[in-house]
Each structure stands twice: as C-alpha cells, then as structure tokens.
Design a protein around this nucleic acid. Structure first.
Lengths: 206, 206
DNA sequence: TAGATTGTTAATCGATTAACAATC
DNA sequence: TAGATTGTTAATCGATTAACAATC
C-alpha cells in the first residue's frame, strides 16, 4: 500500500531537497529546524512532510542529510529520466531550452520545434529548431515523453492536441490558457501572467 | 471595512479575467458555468470567489462580462502602474524583458541591469543593459517600485539586499532560493525548478 | 409563471499548527 | 542522566463543495 503524499507536501519536497543540497557541503546532519529555515516554512511542517516518506530521522539528533536526500529523490522519481520536446522557439522557448535546471530533475530535451519558417533551422543552445509538422515523427522516433508548450496562448490548444495525438501523456503548459485534454494526459501549468496578477494585487493593498 | 479576499481566490482572479476577456468578443453576458469551464474550476468555486467582490451578477441571468472585468481589475489593482527593474540579463532575464504580458498588469520595465561586463552595454528588447553597480541610482532616479530577480541562485540574496537598500519594497524572485528580507519587503517567488520537481513526481507515479 | 442562475449557507475536506510522548 | 529532537496526535484553520432559497 503506497502512502498517498499530499500535494502540498509534494510541492515542498523539491525545496527541501535544494536546501539539503546546500547544507550538505558543511554538515552531514541537520534538524527539522535547519531545513525549515532554509525552506521558509515551520519546523513542524517539515517534520509532518517528512513523516510521509517514513521515519528517516533520529530523535534527539536529527536527519542524516545524504540519506534524506536519497529518500526525497526516490519519492520524487528522480531516479528516472524523461525525454522532452519543447514546442515554441520564441523567447520563452529559448529560455526554457537554455535552462540548466532540467537536468537536475532528469529531463532531457531531445528536440525544439516551431512552425515559423524563419525559426526552423536556426540554432538554440545547440539544438536546431525543427518543423512543428514533424512533431509526430519526432515524438515517435525519439520516444518523447513530455511536451513543453512555450507558444503564444492562441496556439497552445492545437499544440496540446498534436502532442496528445502523437502519444505524449505529460504536458507542461507555459501558455496562460487552460488546456482541454482527455484524462489520459496530465497537464501542469506554470503561468507567469497569473503570478504577475497576484503580485499586482498585493502591491495595491494598503 | 475592506473585505479580506482569501489568497486562493486572489490566485484565481487573473484566470477568470483572461477567460472573461476571451468571452467578451462573442458575448456580453456569461454564467458562472461558462467562467468555470474556461478557467478549469467548478461553477460553485467561481460564484464563491466572485461573491468576495460583492454581488455583481443577476440571478437567473448571469454576469455582465464587461462590468465583471472592471470589478476584477479594480480588486487586482490593475488601475495602477508599477515601474520595474530586471536584475540579471541572462536567458531568464532576457525572456522576462521580452515578455509582453507585463503591460497587461501595469508593469513597466524601466531598466535591465547585470554585473557581467560582457553584457553591460548590450541590447535586450530595446533596453541597454546597465551596470548592477548603478542599481541604487537607477532605483532612485526612475522611481523603481519592483525588482525582478533573474540571476543565478548564488547571487539572488545579494541582489535582494541591494534592492532593499535602494528602497525597493516588492520583489519577484525567479531564483530557486528563499530570500531573507525584512518584513517591510514583500517577496513573491516563481520557481520553475520546483515545478519540474512536482512534474517529475507525477510522472513517476503509477 | 416557469426556467435559469445567483449568492449564501452548512457540510465536508484537507492542510497547518501546537503540543508532547517517545527516544536517541 | 539531561538535553535535544523526532514522529504523531489532536486541535485549529482555511478552502472547497453541495445544496438550495432567493430572485431575475
């Protein structure tokens, strides 16, 4: 029986991991208090979250940093790698393609595609931009598992449909639009525009 | 007595607004059901959220799209504009500077700075990259209100300190690190790396 | 009036916090 | 043993959902 980890806890695990990585250079042990400080949450929150992974701490002592990192990595599925296609070679797509953080999580970009003939054939971070029309064959031949949508919002749904048709079952959507997909496709969204809206709200508060 | 709007509601308002903007081209009225579909939430959720803004709907009819947009814009503070400095002219900083979504929320980029002498003087989207050392005078002379941190994580805290010292009271932090700032500074974080971690978790689930 | 849809209530659900026994 | 810190419980808090009276 796999323990179901609450989504709020999952969302904090990557932060704990980064925090542990920072601490691992100076120590081998840490307390929930240490992690809490680095991650910007309470110590009780940290202990509660880590309890979902099982008991890996030692009472009176704390957690072994390396061991805890291994546990978190296992839970987050960082033992696997995933092949990614980036759709959209504009500013956002370029930034994503250049982003070094992907390797950390086991994401390997295998193609960058666009439907703009001016961009096709140009180079981005060592990748040659390929035609959007080739998406199906690229997905099939390179066993692409994840599609990142970095297109203007108007194109995003079409891209999602094409990715789905090609057999991709996981999408990271950076376009500020809610995609309509079947239940077999899991979509996550990162929406800078919405974040700016929230920021604007807080700024306008007295 | 200003009604305190729950943070979860605030986070959804920008999405409702975009959704309403899309619908406004084809209709002048809409129901909570329509908004819910476009925003990917339940109709009950929409009505509950909108109730915090006051009663702007008509029972049996729905909401007037234009009027509702005005209400949401007012609540989100979109009647104001904010001057922004982008710190970091790397890939992320460039993508941010090129991002057209800023104007929507009243954010006006007035400077892009970096501490890399190779980047200083180069052009990004019409801006000439200026020296990080000039941050203080730039903030003062151009009345900068918001700092966007688009640097590597190792530099982010220093940048935050400098922004704070220069008098900036709002920071959007794109670096994957928790900033330590005084209570007078409000920080929001957008962390692509954490999002990738969450995505990896969901991908590795059966 | 009949049909539709809001605004609001109460119930449910899930997440956070505080406290402390367990135990190194 | 004394001090420290975990793991877990119970209480609290906040957000979501379902239902429906109000009312256009």
């Amino acid at each position: 029986m796999k323990a179901p980890i609450p989504s709020a806890t999952v969302a904090r695990l990557p932060r704990y991991l980064r925090c542990l990585a920072d601490m691992s250079t100076v120590s081998s042990q840490c307390s929930s208090e240490h992690i809490a400080e680095g991650a910007g949450v309470t110590a009780a929150q940290v202990r509660k979250d880590l309890s979902f992974l099982g008991s890996h701490g030692t009472r009176g002592v704390g957690y072994d940093i390396d061991e805890l990192m291994v546990q978190i990595k296992a839970v987050l599925g960082m033992t696997k790698t995933f092949r990614v296609v980036v759709v959209g070679a504009g500013n956002l797509g370029s930034a994503i393609t250049n982003y070094r953080g992907f390797e950390t999580w086991g994401f390997e970009i295998v193609a960058v595609v666009d439907n703009d003939s001016n961009k096709i054939g140009s180079a981005i971070d060592g990748f040659t931009v390929e035609a959007f029309a080739s998406l199906g064959s690229i997905v099939a031949e390179r066993a692409v598992q994840i599609g990142i949508i970095a297109t203007p919002p108007a194109a995003a749904q079409l891209v999602a449909d094409e990715l789905t048709a090609a057999g991709v079952r996981s999408i990271l959507n950076l376009a500020p639009i809610v995609l309509k997909t079947g239940d077999e496709v899991s979509v996550r969204r990162v929406d800078l525009s919405t974040e700016l809206g929230i920021l604007a709200y807080h700024l306008s508060q007295p």
